[in-house]
Amino acid sequence: MIKKALVLSALLAFSAVPAQADPRQDILDQLAVEASAADANFSGFSAARGEKLFRTKFGTGKPATPSCTSCHTESPRNVGETRAGKAIDPVAVSVNPSRFTDPAKVAKWFRRNCKSVIGRECTALEKGDYITFMMTQ
């Protein structure tokens, strides 16, 4: 409990200053709150776990999309492609700084794509890890 309180207060303190200027951090903060609520041992997001999520071939979702890489390609810096042939802007934040800044869009695409790829909705931890990985890319 103490640990969780510490993490939360640290996150809140960290987010208090840049809150208005950094919508991506707001989204991450919100996910952190949800992740802590779900797991008392939550100790922050991990880019390494995010990368694993990105590359795992699940095979538990819809057959056409076993993995994030099915559409986003092996490198998040690449332009991806939908199955219908439309270009998908890169997911890597360095290439596409507007990524993960619109909460509605983030919610919509995690909901859809996690169901398509994994066959269920993603946890807050998975979403936070994924965004954290993309911020390093």
Partner: peptide
């Protein structure tokens, strides 16, 4: 839309 040609395309 949840099963839209093999993908989840659900909307609000």
């Amino acid at each position: 839309l949840e099963d839209h040609f093999g993908e989840d395309a659900s909307l609000d």
